[in-house]
Amino acid sequence: MDHVLRTHKITKYFYDPEKFQVLKEIDLVVNKGEFLSLVGKSGCGKSTLLYVLSTMDTDYEGELEISGQRLTGKNQNALARFRNEHIGFVFQFHYLLPEFTALQNVMIPAQKLGRYTRSEIEERAYEKLKMLGMHEHALKPSAKLSGGQQQRVAIARGIINDPDIIMGDEPTGNLDSYNTGLVFEIFQELTHTYHQTIIAVTHDEAFAHKSDRIVEMSDGRIVHPGGVLLPKMQT
């Protein structure tokens, strides 16, 4: 099976208030279609790792490669373009743009990418919303939606450009158990039906245990690489 993401000895320091090594030579390979949970205690560095993987944090040592592209050392504009095309995000707080409708929120990353015409984008956005059961709320202002609904719209926005990876930072952290279940089902469907790769940082043990692979971190190291689907080590 192909890997989508690979890191080589990723090391990162925090300098404030004093020098502190938050990530210690992380080697991680994520395969296509894997639903991976990144778990660990608070402060173990899992969120920090996710933001390095997301390409938003460029202040690290080591190497990062996604979809066969080496991303270490690229400039911010190139990385922004890369994120737009290859990475979808789902955050704990839904972070929809409140002045826009649900549909517009979903459309924005696609309009930014500019691969399709506006009407095509609108059609695709409707499709994604429908997949998540949100098409009835498409024209509502996003601020008028409930938390669970907003998170589903956010997921639709995350997958509008058919990204190689969806990255989630506590995607269910702010949801009740019903909506947590719903979001989990959506993720599962995405991985199983559409072979979508998902990396989610989570505190939620139940959520993690239902995912395909659990990577456990402690003190800036991966202490348990999971590996249900781990292929033969490719350094």
Binding site: S54, M56, Q76, N77, A80, R81, F82, R83, N84, E85, F89, F91, F93, Y95, L97, P98, I108, P109, K112, L113, R157
Partner: peptide, 16 residues
């Protein structure tokens, strides 16, 4: 600020 952060995450460059 939040909107700007999410726009940047979604692939908007600083100049955008």
């Amino acid at each position: 600020m939040k909107d700007i952060a999410i726009l940047k995450a979604m692939g908007f460059a600083g100049k955008d």
